[in-house]
Simulated scan of single mutants.
Amino acid sequence: MTNSDSRPTLAILISGRGSNMVAIARTCLSGALNARVTLVISNRPDAPGIEAAREMGIDTAVIDHKAFASRQAFDDALHERLMSVKPDWIVLAGFMRILTEDFVNRWQGRMLNIHPSLLPKYPGLDTHARAIAAGDRHAGASVHIVSPELDAGPVVAQVRVPIESDDTADTLAQRVLQEEHGLYIKALQLCVGKMDQ
């Protein structure tokens, strides 16, 4: 990419295989999302998503949280690396770290996360098992603006997935994941579109 590329920029944070990251990056490359991914960061050196990003020609970085004495020290290093590219949006895509309030406040209103429930229901972990146990008819996923409170920021977009009578937490999780990629792209189109106005 040349410096004349004026599209909004994304930095994507991952901890694992990065399936949402790959879907977002491919959509950017195809032109269907008016943005470009300038950096993918993982807090885990063995995250398969890092190699996937490299194969797409995206700049990558590994900031191993285990190398830092405190959560704050890790977040400071993460912030410093992000500032080297100054993204318009930070996209959390399977990033399994709770960020400090200080870090969130630095990027307030410019950081998105995807969560596998119909927020405000079931913040935190084990969302699918909790939805089944409660007898809910639908589960789903939400993309929200990150706030200092866990999974509590304003929801940008949601998708609903019916809970079948024979669903387990695993089968439900698989079906929700199939809907997550399109949901995240829809949410980014909404957020990036606001920047263009």
Rank of each mutant, 00 (worst) to 15 (best):
D75Y: 02
G109F: 11
R17S: 09
H115C: 05
S70M: 01
R137W: 02
P154Q: 12
P116L: 03
T60I: 05
A93E: 04
V91K: 00
G31Y: 07
A25M: 10
R81W: 13
R175E: 00
I163M: 04
P123S: 07
L13E: 07
L177M: 12
L183W: 02
T127I: 02
P123Q: 04
R137K: 04
L82I: 05
W107T: 05
G124L: 08
A157T: 10
L125E: 01
A152S: 13
D151I: 08
K194W: 12
A173P: 09
P116A: 07
S70V: 03
R106G: 07
L119T: 07
I163K: 02
I90E: 01
E180K: 07
V91N: 05
F103T: 12
I24F: 12
I58T: 14
T171Y: 10
Y122E: 00
R81L: 10
S70L: 06
K86C: 09
E55K: 15
S70P: 07
P148H: 05
R26N: 15
T2M: 12
L112F: 02
S165D: 10
E149P: 14
D167E: 02
I132A: 03
I50P: 05
L13W: 03
A35G: 11
A25V: 14
W89G: 03
G16L: 08
D59S: 15
I58A: 11
V146T: 08
I63K: 02
H65V: 10
L13T: 01
A169H: 08
V146E: 08
L118V: 00
K121H: 13
D126A: 09
I58Q: 11
S4A: 15
E80T: 12
M1L: 15
L78S: 00
A32H: 15
P120W: 04
D166Y: 04
C28Y: 13
R137G: 06
R97H: 03
A32V: 11
H128K: 01
R160W: 07
G49Q: 09
D5S: 02
V143H: 05
D167T: 01
S42Q: 10
R7A: 13
R36K: 15
I163Y: 05
S30Y: 12
M56G: 13
E101R: 08
D59G: 13
G94R: 11
A187M: 00
I114P: 00
K121P: 07
K194D: 15
F103M: 11
L78K: 03
A61W: 00
D126E: 08
P48Q: 06
L190V: 13
K121I: 08
A23C: 14
E80L: 09
S19H: 15
E179A: 15
R130V: 04
S165M: 06
T100C: 08
D88C: 05
A152P: 09
L92V: 04
